[in-house]
């Protein structure tokens, strides 16, 4: 009876994961053949079907988009991948590469690269996980200290507390950056108007592939913030690829 159950479980697992892995291999095959459109289609389907897509999936989809010349979509997906796994060299390289092609820097020029890499060493999810993990460890050690009144454990408890404070501070600085809604400009020269409508004058235009911050939405219009220009305005929703 037990062996039947194990076999049944194995079949279920294989049946669940095989289509996913098979699709990945199929997409890779198309990519290798230079049929980036087919590869992109498969990755896109997977992104739609997966509840929590992995950084690799976003990255592979972005690669296909880039090869197809869909640079704004590529940037958006590299960014998503980077948010999930910021210390991955491939993701970081490709995002920085595509951004550099459009005159933008992933690492701000006024920040040392090492500091930037350290600050973005963990993803926000990992950072939150680390915070909870430290909290649980602290609680466990605290209980032991209360029971045993052990001096060494007390020192460990203090260390854990300091770690929690540091990680919490890190998390508090990171959270606003990572949760900031961003978008990539899709149009060659997107017109930025002073209000959400054609009747408002065009204040400036932004080139394609530029990353902007999303501030608000109204009907078919999106309010964007351009920190480099210290200005904001409204752009047609269809001109943006939201990250």
């Amino acid at each position: 009876m037990n062996s039947i159950f194990k076999r049944f479980l194995l079949i279920i697992i294989v049946a669940f994961f095989t289509p996913y892995l098979f699709a990945q291999e199929e997409a890779q095959k198309f990519y290798d053949q230079g049929d980036y459109l087919q590869a992109a289609k498969i990755y896109n389907e997977q992104l739609k079907d997966t509840k929590k897509p992995s950084a690799s999936l976003y990255y592979n989809f972005a690669n296909s988009c880039y090869k197809l010349g869909l640079t704004p979509r590529a940037i958006a997906n590299y960014y998503r991948a980077w948010r999930l796994n910021p210390r991955d060299n491939d993701i970081r390289h490709n995002l920085a590469f595509v951004m550099a092609q459009n005159g933008q820097n992933l690492v701000p020029t006024d920040i040392p690269e090492i500091a930037f890499n350290l600050f973005f060493y963990l993803s926000l999810i990992e950072l939150e996980g680390l915070l909870w993990l430290l909290g649980w460890l602290f609680a466990i050690v605290l209980i032991f200290v209360l029971i045993t009144d052990n001096g060494k454990l007390k020192k460990l408890l203090i260390c854990l507390f300091v770690c929690i404070i540091l990680v919490a501070t890190w998390y508090l600085f990171r959270r606003p950056i990572d949760t900031k809604p961003l978008a990539v400009v899709k149009k060659i020269q997107a017109e930025v108007r002073s209000g959400p409508g054609e009747n408002f004058p065009v204040n400036l235009s932004i080139p394609r592939n530029h990353i902007v911050q999303v501030k608000d939405r109204k009907d078919n219009w999106t309010q964007i913030l351009i920190p480099s220009e210290k200005t904001q305005g409204w752009v047609l929703k269809e001109d943006l690829e939201e990250i």
Binding site: L21, Q24, Q28, Y31, S54, A55, S56, L57, Y59, N60, N63, Y66, K67, N85, D88, N89, D90, I91, H93, N94, F97, V98, L122, S123, I125, E126, L127, G129, L130, L133
Partner: peptide
């Protein structure tokens, strides 16, 4: 750009 990536994450990342 760099080539495609295989699925997989490191153990510490999985734990966190």
């Amino acid at each position: 750009i760099y080539y495609l990536k295989k699925e997989g994450t490191s153990l510490p990342s999985k734990i966190l």
